[in-house]
């Protein structure tokens, strides 16, 4: 087994771990961590698998570079919205995180 394949497997482990976290953690910041790490897992799979048995492959590396930049802007965006939301509601979770979300949303008082 080459190092490339091994890191692809690590990537799979990261994805599974992060997916589990995404299901059980409701804290919004922890979820931001979760999709950052999940993204890293995907990047590892992308580069690791493509380079297994082949020479260094610049294409997935370039794609992952794009992916990293997109990921950081997604993180920044999520944090911005989260912070504004936190300032208004003092909540770090979205209430009732399952398919009754739509209902709980409507029950919030409004002007």
């Amino acid at each position: 087994m080459s190092a490339n394949l091994w890191f692809a497997l690590v990537g799979a482990g990261l994805i599974a771990l992060a997916a589990f976290t995404f299901f059980v953690q409701t804290h919004l910041l922890r979820r931001i961590f979760a999709f950052n790490i999940m993204g890293s897992g995907v990047f590892l799979i992308m580069v690791g698998m493509a380079q297994h048995l082949r020479q260094t492959d610049p294409v997935p590396q370039a794609l992952v570079l794009t992916g990293i930049v997109v990921a950081v802007s997604a993180t920044a965006l999520a944090l911005l919205i989260f912070r504004r939301f936190y300032a208004l509601s003092a909540a770090v979770t979205l209430t009732q995180d399952n398919d009754t979300l739509g209902d709980s949303y409507e029950q919030e008082p409004r002007q």
Binding site: F7, L44, V47, Q51, Q61, L65, I68, V69, A71
Partner: peptide, 15 residues
């Protein structure tokens, strides 16, 4: 280790 120094740079600086 994966022979991707560009990504290492980006990961350290951005990630």
């Amino acid at each position: 280790r994966l022979d991707a120094p560009d990504l290492a740079l980006a990961e350290a600086a951005i990630g």
